[in-house]
Design a protein around this nucleic acid. Structure first.
Lengths: 190, 190
DNA sequence: GGAATGACTAAATGAACAAAATGGTCATTA
DNA sequence: TAATGACCATTTTGTTCATTTAGTCATTCC
């Protein structure tokens, strides 16, 4: 075959998921968009959910790459934490697919979407956790539970970037970095 | 009548809201529970939402009182934050109403509930902000934007109590206080 | 011969309609 | 004159059924 049918299917599905969401994307539509018979999809993917999962796994891998790229070994842990988290969240903001799915998960509660969003969050948490564990070992930050700390960091970031934006003027990247530093690293005590 | 009908209605409604939520509480039910004709409710309250609002206003006032009582001017900001936080924790446990409404707002998105939860959040934020401003003026904590700081404190608190519980074993009160202290006051830096 | 296909089926979905429940009113009652 | 519950308009819930959809498989095509 001249063209890679599997790739065609993945691209068609990604486009449709991005545009209409998971539920509103039909396998007929994916087949049509991919210029492929519907049955062909099932020679590459067991079912709709597996096709979806494979797309999300790529997305997660891409996110990890972006985050990893943001890390600069010559910088401090807190600066790197900020850079990585900021990049991940910006990535999420930029990619139509993540935006659409976030919406669908919240508004319609589609189970497959919720499952996948949890996977994405877990991937982010596991990435941060890894970095925290390392920083603790090296003695760059105080000993702490890496799992809870990763969770708190992510939540703090989401609060500052997404939630704060709902009520007030968005914070600039510099402000976010400064706040991150102030609250999580220096602490408020005199 | 010997008994205060308005009070009866408020108590019945509070019970039902706590037990079944706002939407699932019918005015017939409130009337029945209050041993009152349905029309009587409407001599005291314009409609269901006003009855709800009045109950929430009391709840907010009560929360403020509880928090205010916990504050001891002779203690440090840090210690007072502990005490207020602890009291609010205890308060939350006593009031299924808050929990039920929080759930309903998130899961069903009942507009009246969302509106009221926003009011509660604003009340809490304004309370914390006030205390932070004072502490900064007195030089008890580092200078910081009181509004953002209050926001971050509340979000951290909600993350630790509600969100963490969704994925892992709930944290004990002692653990929550310890984490709050570690992340916000001491900071992670060595 | 084996990959690709699209007509086919069982299951899921949602539109449309009917029935029940609910918020709010008001004439009657005590 | 305050309290009430039958009553009404509207909303919500339950049900039916035609349509749509995910997934299969006999047939086609290279």
């Amino acid at each position: 075959m001249a063209v890679d049918r599997k790739q065609q299917i993945i691209e068609a599905a990604t486009n449709s998921f991005s545009l209409f969401g998971y539920k509103a994307t039909t396998m007929d539509q994916v087949a049509r968009l991919a210029n492929v018979g519907k049955g062909t999809i099932y020679t590459f993917f067991k079912n709709k959910e597996e096709l979806f999962d494979e797309i999300i796994q790529s997305l997660i891998a891409e996110m990890r790459e972006v985050a990893e790229e943001a890390v600069d070994p010559s910088l401090s842990f807190y600066e790197n934490a900020h850079r990585a988290l900021f990049q991940i969240l910006q990535f999420r903001k930029r990619h139509q697919l993540t935006i659409k799915l976030f919406q669908e998960g919240k508004e319609m509660g589609t189970p497959a979407v919720i499952e996948v969003m949890t996977m994405m969050e877990d991937a982010i948490l596991s990435f941060i956790k890894e970095k925290i564990s390392l920083a603790v070992e090296v003695g760059e930050i105080k000993p702490c539970n890496p799992e809870v700390t990763a969770f708190v960091m992510l939540k703090l970031y989401i609060s500052l970037i997404f939630d704060w934006e709902q009520r007030k003027e968005p914070l600039s990247e510099e402000e976010i970095l400064r706040l991150f530093e102030l609250y999580l690293f220096e602490g408020l005590s005199i």
